[in-house]
Design a binder for these strands. Structure first.
Lengths: 330, 330
DNA sequence: TTGAAAGCGCTAACAG
DNA sequence: CTGTTAGCGCTTTCAA
């Protein structure tokens, strides 16, 4: 049977024969106390199986050690990577991460932000710069340290850590153009919800247009990105049979779908068709032909955000850049 | 400039010209109040931009709406999947997930469990059944609902949701044997820390031994699992050149490494070498030859655990099983 | 239907 | 070095 641990600070104080504040000082190793007192308190705490109540501690002392993190998805490795960087740095500083997953739904994001704010977190991280007006208002008025991650294309509220998605799109287009590809199609996932993917393709088309070109075809699967969606998207494009020499995918997962479809159908990469992705996932590096893609510093973004969240940093924008990986598919 | 939202319940009460408890009742929609009072309170709250303080609310009312989740890793999609299932179900019931990542370090896990317990969570989820003695003691004495996930091979503290890893290993061995493979090697990652992987290979060898066979070779990479580690592991085995007809990998990431190594080296799968993994990741399904593996109900495990955590369920063990996916590589 | 008052368990002055 | 005393912002009796 589970016996609730009801021991409180007062219980420990009584057991040790000292005052509550003394116990508090000893347990937090803050302020002064004699060695002898310290031992008695620690012994009593251990004996009673005392577990401090952070809820009470936080209420009494103002600042909480919680950091809220609202991310859009856990369906691929991208945000887990960000979370990994953040949680590691946070834990090292004695903070705890409270997470919520919005599934790329702005209304849910808004509700989650409100919900997180109710815990009076030391800082709140959100993905991207686009939020509902109400969410923006909540964030701006909260007085909490706000960190917007993974995007730098647009105004930020407090601190932004990431890179320019628009520039990722531009660089990707420049690469394909430099390799001589001219008849390029786009295969993407739901852009209405993934605003960063929308910025990438916008930057991509900008460069194409500047070169007097345009996308030959474009297929947007109305679901979240996935390997299957990439496969289905390329299948539809191929069915429409435009003359094509390259496909730009909204991310690596989508591109993998395309890659293996080509492999299965005997379409040679990049001879018959070049493939370009985004994210720089590990698996792309070990493919028979390494995927041409853009690597983003996801773990580092999380870690940097965590550091900034716990320091008393001024509002700022941190550009961690990205790396175009030439690979062998485009 | 960020202006702290300092409005408290008392402020709202004063602004609305009612008592604090009345505001509390209206805001939580609990207890009785007149329609007119309700309107005045809501108006005042909106006007002041009032955000309730859950820290205070929780302290005053006992039960928190936090659920702690301590997972070993975020480096591959496995635990993000569990987290996804859990967070979705939790959010639906108005709970918040607090997460911590132990990096497969038992001592860190213990510290994290203690740390989570300090938030007096409504429930605490941990991965697996193996913990330090101190951690087990903390969990058992906490009086908190404890959920141990992803493993059923061993005694559980309160509720366990998962499947038998040992049985996964057995089923995998039976499958390879049934397909006629006899000279089998194992390529795994650090077993000292991944106890569930250790249980799988134990079950695997058990069946092999019962058939009068033994592993022909075994390579254990002393790091976390990864595609690169799988590749490196298989490389070493091949360098030792034992006569081999199949390789059992500790998981799909490792197996992908092996798969692409074979592809690059022109080793035909499964003719020259059969490959078997574990996890049933999406990418394995779209490979030219779908990966032979075992699919586990990760999202469902998270969701089931969340449901059990928020209901007032009795202590129990829930076996959600697994599915052997024959695939085309073994 | 409403308000007053007593805490929840802890921290933070402030005396001693 | 140590104890006393107020709260932190909210929920919850208990009366009115």
């Amino acid at each position: 049977m589970l016996r609730p641990s009801t021991a409180t600070l007062a219980d420990v104080a009584a057991a040790a024969g000292v005052g509550e504040s003394t116990v508090s000082r000893v347990l937090r190793n803050h302020g002064s106390f004699s060695q002898k007192t310290r031992e008695r308190v620690l012994a009593a705490a251990t004996r009673l199986g005392y577990v401090p109540n952070r809820i009470a501690g936080t209420l009494a002392s103002a600042g909480s050690r919680l950091v809220g993190i609202v991310i859009p998805s856990l369906a691929n490795i991208v945000f887990p990577d960000v979370l990994r960087g953040a949680s590691q740095a946070l834990e090292a500083e004695g903070y705890q991460a409270v997470i919520a997953v919005s599934e790329y739904d702005m209304a849910r994001e808004e509700a989650m932000i409100a919900s997180m704010l109710a815990w009076r977190p030391a800082a709140l991280m959100v993905a991207g710069l686009e939020h509902t007006p109400a969410a923006r208002a909540l964030l701006a008025a909260s007085g909490t340290r706000i960190l917007e991650l993974m995007d730098l294309d647009g105004p930020s509220i407090d601190i932004a850590v990431g890179f320019s998605n628009r520039e990722v799109g531009r660089a990707s287009a420049r690469h394909l153009l430099a390799r001589g590809y001219r008849r390029i199609a786009y295969v993407g996932h739901d852009l209405a919800v993934d605003t960063r993917a929308a910025k990438r393709i916008a930057g991509f088309e900008e460069v194409l247009h500047a070169a007097g070109l345009a996308l030959v075809d474009r297929e947007t699967i109305p679901t979240a990105s996935s390997i299957e969606a990439g496969q289905a998207g390329l299948e539809r494009v191929l069915a429409r049979a435009p003359r094509l020499d390259a496909v730009y995918f909204s991310n690596d997962d989508m591109a993998f779908g395309g890659y293996f479809l080509c492999m299965t159908r005997g379409i040679s990469i990049p001879g018959d068709l070049a493939i370009f992705g985004y994210n720089g996932l590990a698996i792309g590096r070990v493919l028979p032909q390494p995927l041409s893609t853009v690597r983003t510093p996801r773990v580092e973004i999380g870690a940097t955000a965590a550091r900034l969240a716990t320091e008393n940093a001024p509002a700022q924008r941190v550009d961690l850049g990205f790396e175009l990986v030439p690979g062998g598919t485009a």
